[in-house]
């Protein structure tokens, strides 16, 4: 029956992006890393930069992304991806360089590196996956963990007197002169996924047109460490998390100062 259907519907309208390797990922069921990876790969294909891209992988669940995205990769020490990417970009300014980092990687140990890469207007693109937890290490409290959220290291719920507030990266980096583009997106509804693709395209374009530093923050799920079914995890993103972390474009330079 399948072949008959295939005859009546010959035109493939959705298939695996060329830059996304056809392998099963280690990510948990319903983990939004998979969607962010696919959007990244689609955008690499769209801009046809696969052959001149160097990716910088984080330390976290996505450390293994070099098994999934078919480009040259360097693995950065935890939190140092923006610095490694700076070294790569300065070595080959005409290559497309991106980092892909989680909230522990970027907003905790790597805060200094991300702020100064942005402040230098480093011409790199950062995909920042915010799932309010340290996934790989088993669900500890992250800088973006919500108030009241129970984690392995905030078993009674995050409490601001003790643990401070969830950090808003997209807004933080938008205040930095060197930042050309800073946006926050989500991938919990088809419409959000479409907007997320647009944001990543904008970010790629900023780098390719040498306008400067670009970052896209993805609100993502971590069903395993949230102890939720994937669909419920998405509801949490749509509700509580989006409430505190509003989606939107927080900075978009029209063109670089130095052009």
């Amino acid at each position: 029956m399948k072949d008959k259907r295939r005859e009546t519907f010959p035109r493939a309208v959705f298939s695996r992006p060329r830059s996304l390797l056809d392998v099963r990922s280690h990510y948990c069921p319903g983990c939004h890393h998979g969607i962010a990876h696919r959007i990244l790969a689609e955008t690499i294909d769209r801009f046809d930069v696969r052959g001149k891209t160097v990716g910088v992988a984080p330390v976290g669940c996505a450390v293994l992304m070099y098994d999934y995205i078919d480009v040259d990769f360097a693995e950065a020490p935890h939190g140092r991806a923006p610095a490694v990417a700076t070294g790569v970009k300065r070595a080959h300014p005409d290559r497309f360089v991106f980092t892909y980092q989680g909230d522990g990687d970027l907003a905790a140990i790597g805060t200094s590196e991300i702020i100064h890469a942005a402040n230098r207007g480093e011409n790199i693109t950062v995909l920042f996956i915010n799932n309010t937890t340290y996934g790989m290490t088993g669900g500890q409290m992250a800088p973006t963990t919500m108030l009241g959220q129970k984690t392995a290291t905030s078993p009674y719920g995050r409490e601001f007197r003790n643990d401070g507030y969830p950090i808003k990266v997209a807004e933080l980096l938008a205040t930095i002169e060197g930042t050309a583009y800073s946006a926050r997106v989500a991938t919990s509804t088809p419409a959000q996924i479409r907007k997320a693709k647009e944001a990543v395209r904008k970010a790629f374009d900023m780098q390719i047109r040498e306008v400067g530093f670009s970052l896209v923050e993805f609100l993502s799920t971590c069903p395993t460490n949230w102890g939720m079914k994937p669909l419920d995890a998405q509801k949490r993103v749509l509700g509580e998390i989006s409430g505190y972390f509003p989606l939107g474009v927080y900075k978009e330079r029209k063109q670089a100062d130095f052009v």
Binding site: R80, A83, G87, V88, H92
Partner: peptide
């Protein structure tokens, strides 16, 4: 290329990136 980093932690990672790109650094 000369670049002053924000810390020695960033410095060594600039080095790592440049070296991974094949440059003497």
């Amino acid at each position: 290329m000369f670049l002053q980093a924000e810390s020695e932690v960033a410095t060594i990672n600039f080095l790592l990136g440049a070296s991974a790109s094949g440059k003497r650094v």
